[in-house]
Design a protein around this nucleic acid. Structure first.
Lengths: 136, 136
DNA sequence: TTAAAACCTACTGAATTGGTTGGTTATATG
DNA sequence: CATATAACCAACCAATTCAGTAGGTTTTAA
């Protein structure tokens, strides 16, 4: 499993926010109910998105979250890398991984590199706007 | 992380066996030493490969493992699906997963399907023979 | 008979996953 | 000003997976 619930839920929340973009701040309570996800769990996932300027949250009554750009400006890959930490297909290619001993002679290394490249390339080719067209 | 040590090690063992194909049965003790992998851990990973006819093990002194076909006849994807159980990018697409409630309305479902399709397609396009050319 | 190999079963420590509990702080509204 | 509602924050937790270990049994060549 490459993408856990963190990334999957984050993506669904972003699509939900995109779909209700015109209605001002959207409280997470509503999104949680619509998406059938625990509100408390969502509250743990969202901070990384607001800290990086992907969404903005307004406190208090009438508050909620809003996108900061148009849906076409969000790449799925960016959202997933932020919430998942990494999209590397194997541990030895992850950001904080200890440099592999057999790096120079490993016959499978370029396989994993190319796989990772293709995964990121595909996820970067899809935007939130593309996903909005999916729901019916 | 899509592929754990199980799949990664299995692949390296298969490449090692391919490279020593002409030398008759290769004991896992030798492979473990060459690949710097725990012999006991390898012994836990290999049974699924021999049970499915990918390799054949001969007992006793002078025994070991051997490939059952030419390296070009092994697709990397097959080896990984066997040792990892699944190459689904998300839990809701895994073989034994409970059918998702929002399956029909989920705006991200086709994204995951297409991602999984691309991952499998790439890994099925590479063979053991391709990986043999990598090591130097 | 013995050494060496595959093969089998049970256990284990550490990390990750997928949350829950229980708050604090900020703000719009009556 | 009180209150309801929202984001935000920190600690904890059960279950599962990961990456092995430990300790065998069975099979076979020499």
């Amino acid at each position: 499993m490459l993408v856990s619930t963190r990334g999957r839920y984050a993506l669904r929340v972003m699509v939900d926010l995109a779909q209700h973009q015109s209605q001002g701040p959207i409280p997470m309570k509503d999104v949680a109910q619509r998406q059938q996800i625990s509100l408390k769990y969502l509250e743990k996932i969202l901070p990384v998105l607001s800290k990086n300027g992907y969404i903005v949250g307004t406190h208090g009554k009438g508050g909620g979250y809003q996108l900061t750009r148009a849906p076409e400006k969000y790449r799925v890959g960016d959202i997933l890398r932020l919430t998942e930490g990494d999209l590397a297909p194997v541990a030895c290619l992850e950001a904080g991984a200890a440099p592999c001993q057999q790096r120079d002679t490993c016959p499978t290394r370029s396989l994993w590199c190319e796989l990772g490249r293709r995964v990121n390339e595909y996820l970067d080719s899809v935007t939130l706007a593309d996903l909005m067209k999916e729901s019916h």
